[in-house]
Each structure stands twice: as C-alpha cells, then as structure tokens.
Design a protein around this nucleic acid. Structure first.
Lengths: 187, 187
DNA sequence: ACCTGAACACCGTTCAAGT
DNA sequence: ACCTGAACACCGTTCAAGT
C-alpha cells in the first residue's frame, strides 16, 4: 500500500540551505532537516544517500545560483573591463548574502564532488570575459588568475582575515583595477 | 597526591596535526588524540578547553610554520620581484605538504580565533615585499591583492577546482608575473 | 594535580515492521 | 513505496572517585 510522499528532494535541499546559513555546517543536521520538512530523520535516506550527499546538493544549488548571478551581472556590460568589474562585485555581494554556503563551496578540501556541469556553467562567464580581455590564447590563465584572486579575496573577507585595518572596499576595487589593467591585451 | 604528567599540550597538538593530515578534520577526534598520546579522552580537557580550541592550536602551529617558511623563502632575495615569486612558490609548496591543515587555516568561515601575533608575523613578510614593490602608499592594497590571489589559487588547486585542463603550473607562474608586473611601481 | 570509568546528550545510519 | 520507532556505533563533554 503506497504512502503519499510527505516531502521532496527539493524541499530537503531548501531546508538544508536555510539551516546551513543559520547554524553553520554543524547545524546542518539530518535531524534538523527532518524536523523542518516534517518527517523523521530515517526518511531522508529515501531521497539522499547520506549527509555528505545532502551537503553536496546544497553546495550545488549554491553554485547554480551564483552562476545565474554572474550571467546577470555581466549581461548588461558589452565592455569586458566593466563586465569583469561587475562580475567581481556580484561574487562579493553574493558571498555576503550566503556567507556560510559560499564558504562551504569554496573551502579548500571540502571534498564535495559537485556536478561538473554546474561548475562549468558558473565559470563559463569568467572565461568568456577573460578571453575578450586577454585574448583567446591567454584566456584560461587569465581566468584562473582572476578567479583565484576573487575567491581568495572574498574568502579572506568572510573569515575576517583582513585584520590590519585600512579600507577593504578600496582594496577590492584596487584589485579589480590592477588585474583588469594587467590582463588587458596591449594594443 | 599529585600524579606525574602523562602527556603535554605540545604532544597533544602534534598528535592533532598528524591526525588532521591523515584523516581529515573529521579524523581529528578527541578519542584518537587521546589514544595517540596515551591517555583517556577526558584527560585532554586538562590541557585544552574543548575540541575547537585544539583545532585552533593546530591551525596556529600551522600558521607559525608557514610564517617561518615565508621568511626563509624571501630571506635570500634582495630583489622584491624575485622575493615575491619565491614567497608565492613557498606557499604553494607548503600547502602541498600539509594540504588538510592549509585548507582548515584558509577555509572561509572556519571561525578559529587565531593568535593575532602569529597572523601578523605570517603576513609581515608579504607586506614588506609589497611595500618595496609597490611603494609604501600602496603597500597594504598590494599585499591584499597578492595574498588573495595566492590563497585563492592554492586553495582552488587543493580542492581540485581547476578542472578545465591546461597547465596549472603555467597558470601559477602566469599569475606571479602578471601581479608582479602590475604592482611594480612605475618609474 | 592529574587521570580514569561511567554517564549523558547528540549525531549519522540501518533495518524490520507498519501503512 | 514511503514512513516510522528502535537500535547501534560513535562523538564531545562532564563529573565524581581514584591516586
């Protein structure tokens, strides 16, 4: 005798995202998720192999959302230099909106195996802009330089690593200008 | 009647570092540490407030070691451009030697409160070189740009984020050259 | 003054039994 | 076919009792 579904994978992931942001990774508990969606913890294992898979799904949803934001930010900017700046600011503001999830996605050694497609999608915009800016030949190296700086900066900011005072906003804009300048193909 | 000490904080931290590297953060267990140093888990609480403090001590030891490496790497290089390159390569090679610890120290939202002094010490070398390279006025912004790129690159490399093929070594050297070039004070 | 066994709360996960 | 209670192993942590 079938039982009607009392929850869904989407609902579970959404609950996970919310719990992650409010209580950190250690607050993302199978029990807490189950409570949120209105089932008992064992039932979650019908939709998800184990907790690590749930974390991976949460990370994936985060990456997909970030990808959307990047597309949107760069869409209105035909000039690659302005597009790059818009994209960088979009990442920073996204991280501020979802600090914990951003931290999980970009923390080294998190070991979530993410869907390659969502990852490719999220980096496509950066690569495209890097190609326009630096030329096809240097596109990959340029994109990696920008992405590393951007993830590094935002990650450090999130963990409060900029402890020496000064103007962090200015340092961010300085980084954008410096990199844009350096990567622009010299005529 | 006093009991002779059967372990020490140093021994506990050393065991923690070893366990962290071999079994990840989840392998760094109070029980496992206790086994390593030859006491029962409750005894650890005589030297350490709780597990999070132990993790913080492990992170701190890692940062101090990294600071030493940076000093050593930059020491032999009077030319700031070469010093910066040496320093960047030293960070990358350090991270390869202690990937998990590096990940913990530089993962956004790790929320370890580290000793400000060890942090200052680890960043002092970068700031000094940045000042020589970019001038005193731009030193902080320049140091932040370099540090962000470096942490970001190494972190991404550790988590296997460079999935699009290409030569990652070349991308690293590309980043060094690009940043050094861009940050050098124009005559 | 340090160390220990026992105990507690909490977690992830499994599984047989229900519908 | 999904859901549940019960159970298990494993944590971190506390504490009274030992030496």
């Amino acid at each position: 005798m079938p039982t009607p579904d009392r929850t869904s994978l989407d609902e579970i992931v959404a609950a996970g995202r919310s719990l992650l942001e409010s209580g950190g990774l250690s607050g993302l508990t199978m029990q807490a998720v189950a409570d949120r969606v209105g089932v008992r913890a064992p039932s979650l294992y019908k939709r998800v192999r184990d907790r690590s898979e749930l974390v991976a799904r949460v990370a994936e949803a985060t990456i997909r959302e970030l990808g959307d934001r990047l597309d949107a930010a760069a869409a209105g900017e035909p000039d690659p230099r302005r597009a790059l700046a818009a994209l960088a600011r979009a990442v920073r503001s996204f991280a501020r909106g979802r600090p914990v999830a951003f931290g999980v996605v970009f923390s080294p050694g998190a070991d979530l195996d993410l869907d390659p497609e969502s990852l490719a999608r999220a980096s496509a915009t950066v690569i495209r802009i890097a190609a326009e800016l630096a030329g096809e030949e240097r596109a990959l190296d340029a994109a990696r330089t920008v992405t590393a700086w951007l993830n590094g900066f935002v990650g450090m900011e999130l963990s409060g690593a900029f402890r020496l005072g000064g103007d962090v906003d200015r340092a961010f804009e300085f980084g954008i200008v410096t990199l844009t300048e350096a990567l622009t193909r010299r005529g």
